[in-house]
Design a protein around this nucleic acid. Structure first.
Lengths: 230, 230
DNA sequence: GGATGACCAGATTTCGTATCTGGTCACGAG
DNA sequence: CTCGTGACCAGATACGAAATCTGGTCATCC
């Protein structure tokens, strides 16, 4: 059994159990048992129980990023902010762990859902968003009648609202369409996007995503609880 | 001491205490003491502890409605949905109890913040919103490229997001402006509103608000935990 | 050298007791 | 008679100490 593979098995076990039982009920011993290893071995891969579950969440975020990257590769028009938000919503609805994360589900994530320090990705994600918004603005794919900070707050708030609002009036696809409409109307220019601008922005955006992806992947591999990209 | 005045004093005492101590710590006896009456007398005005605090919240909502009504009277342009949402946000930020309500502050409101049944105004508010949206659409003050249910969900989600998102990037006025921008872009026609339409819509909207106000005021006065308007 | 599980301190749960409080109602004041 | 009151009760809640559990370590063994 390869070293990296064992780390993956531990994360698999932890992810499975946290969904079944909820964060507070999952013990390290049970995770080890599921992974077919001894308890001490878990600590050869993860510095603490908390950090293990943070890594579970980070790995899930990685998958989300991969999905967005693939979508942009498929169609550069996907770089537009409203489309990114829409795809994110759909992917989150598909994945129970991400959904628990975005809805701050205390039942599943326990105290992990509350404590902002528990999410080191937070600041990296914020930096990524800032980069992304700057790029889109420079390429004329986002309006500039609001300053960047306001736009970031707007998207954050709107996403929070759509994730937390219960009693959706339809299927995830329909809700995602409404979310798309909201972000598009608030932040994108009224005119259709210039295909040349899309083609120009896409590679730069992809590069930022890849860098972000690398940073997060490193964090999982190196056990580092703090510190930015190299 | 007039009958109605005593009810008001009880509500004053309860409102004061709930803000100081939080819902779960406030006892009926303490409320009675503050109101200068005996414990049993509280139950002559409110059928239960829970209902008493629901009434506190309802009274607060009444003040909010009054504020909106006054604003529309001052300037019919205020009937527009984005403006309504903006004014609501500002008024909520000004009033600690409303803020606790809209942010579902468990520290202040305790279980009252969680339980949806605790808020009988919920359905009345939903009906009011539906009426309002219908009116605005009929007068060409709201777009019709989304169906009514989607628009209501959109506004609900956006408001939820702006109330729950922490770390606002500026003053309440600035956040309110961003909220206004979002709702306006998503739901209002791109063209400036027709003054005649505003003048025509305003009285109808005011009538709905007044009817809503009456329903809520009745609920407080009559101790009725259920049931719609007469 | 790398994996393990016995071990420990501190956190958490349990469970029986004591206290508190929502809601009632018999009584007394006016 | 009407209206307000606070003593009263059952059930909820808070408390506390004992018992249990579990995160994290490390001496041991493969």
């Amino acid at each position: 059994m390869a070293e990296a593979d064992r780390g993956r098995r531990i994360l698999d076990a932890a992810a499975d159990l946290v969904l079944r039982w909820g964060y507070k009920r999952v013990t390290i011993e049970e995770v080890a048992k599921r992974a077919g290893i001894g308890k001490g071995t878990v600590y050869l891969h993860f510095r603490s129980r908390t950090w293990l579950f943070v890594c579970v969440l980070m790995r899930e975020s990685l998958d989300l990023v991969d999905e967005l990257v693939a979508a942009i590769r498929r169609d550069p028009a996907t770089v537009q902010i409203a489309e990114q938000v829409r795809l994110t919503y759909l992917e989150v609805q598909r994945r129970p762990l991400l959904r628990a994360m975005f809805t701050r589900d205390h039942e599943v994530l326990g105290d992990l859902a509350r404590d902002p320090d528990a999410d080191p990705v937070r600041e990296w994600r914020a930096a990524l968003a800032a980069d992304l918004f700057r790029l889109l603005r420079e390429h004329g794919l986002m309006r500039t009648d609001l300053d960047l900070a306001a736009q970031m707050y707007l998207v954050g708030a709107v996403q929070t609202g759509f994730y937390l609002q219960h009693a959706a009036p339809g299927s995830p696809e329909e809700v995602a369409a409404v979310l798309h409409h909201t972000v598009r109307a608030a932040l994108e220019p009224p005119t259709d996007p210039d295909p040349a601008a899309l083609a120009a922005a896409a590679p730069a955006v992809l590069e930022r995503y890849q860098r972000f992806r690398g940073t997060v992947a490193d964090a999982i591999a190196t056990q580092a609880p703090q510190g930015g990209p190299a």
